[in-house]
Amino acid sequence: MADKCPVDHQSQSAEKCPVDHSSRATWGGLFSKGSPSESTPSLSAERELSSIPKADDGNWVYPSEAQFFAAMARKNHNPQASDMKTIVPIHNAVNERAWAEVLKWEVGRGGERCGGVKLINFKGKPSQMSPKARCMTLLGYTAPFDRHDWIVERCGTRIRYVIDFYTGRPGPSSSDVSFYLDVRPALDNWEGLRMRAENVWQSWTGGLSSKTTPP
């Protein structure tokens, strides 16, 4: 049975999901607005199946509200139980968007010959700024609040994708939180270099298609 979801928690437990423990505290801070309530709402134990294929069989599974809360509590991050009904769906939706951006890069690159690309490995790196993000902050842009590295396999070829998470402009309500994701192949092997070079060339020549447009 599929019982994991995409980014490690600095352990190999069955509660893996797309934000590690330190990242969860960061994500929780984006939504928590007040002090803990004396009454703790009931937290769901149901888990949502992701659209992200695993290396073996089935898809990754996101954590339940109860698991998300428990993981934050174990790390003394003072989670708000009432926030879980907001954090968990957004956490899942953002990771679905990240996978969709990976698939944009992968369109037309042959993954369909072997059943489609799959997420093999993953790592949350909230304290390690990517070179691109570091350069952007030097130019005055806001730093990302989180970073993930996802290892994707395409018919035996492995590509590392770097995902920087940024908070976007707030919506009409003061409680709205939006996100911008910068997803791209890492420049640590020939395939990643080739993909990024092709994208730059297409941009220069005006031939950039919607099939391969990164965020």
Rank of each mutant, 00 (worst) to 15 (best):
K33G: 14
H77W: 08
S210I: 02
S51I: 02
A14D: 14
T157K: 14
H91W: 11
I163Q: 02
S127G: 05
D57I: 09
K104T: 00
F165D: 00
D182M: 02
T213R: 14
S51R: 10
H21D: 12
C135R: 15
M84Q: 13
N92V: 05
E46F: 08
F69E: 05
R158S: 11
T86R: 15
M1D: 13
G192R: 02
R147A: 02
A93H: 08
L43C: 07
N189D: 15
E96F: 07
T157L: 10
V19K: 05
A25W: 07
L181D: 00
R97Y: 04
G111T: 05
S35L: 13
K132R: 14
I52N: 03
P131F: 08
C5L: 15
P36K: 13
E153T: 15
S44K: 09
S130N: 04
P18F: 09
P41A: 06
R113V: 13
D164R: 00
V88R: 10
V183P: 03
F145C: 05
R74L: 10
Q80P: 03
R169Q: 14
V162S: 04
V162E: 00
A100P: 02
M136L: 15
F145P: 03
V152D: 01
S130M: 02
S82I: 03
W99V: 02
K211Q: 09
S35Q: 11
S173K: 15
D164Y: 01
Y166A: 07
K75F: 13
S174E: 13
I90D: 06
R160G: 03
P79M: 08
P79K: 09
P18V: 04
D56T: 13
G28Y: 12
L43P: 06
E15R: 11
Q128F: 10
D8T: 14
E46R: 13
P63M: 11
T86E: 13
P185A: 03
S44Q: 10
Q202L: 00
K123A: 14
S23E: 12
D164T: 01
A14L: 13
G58D: 07
L119S: 11
L139C: 09
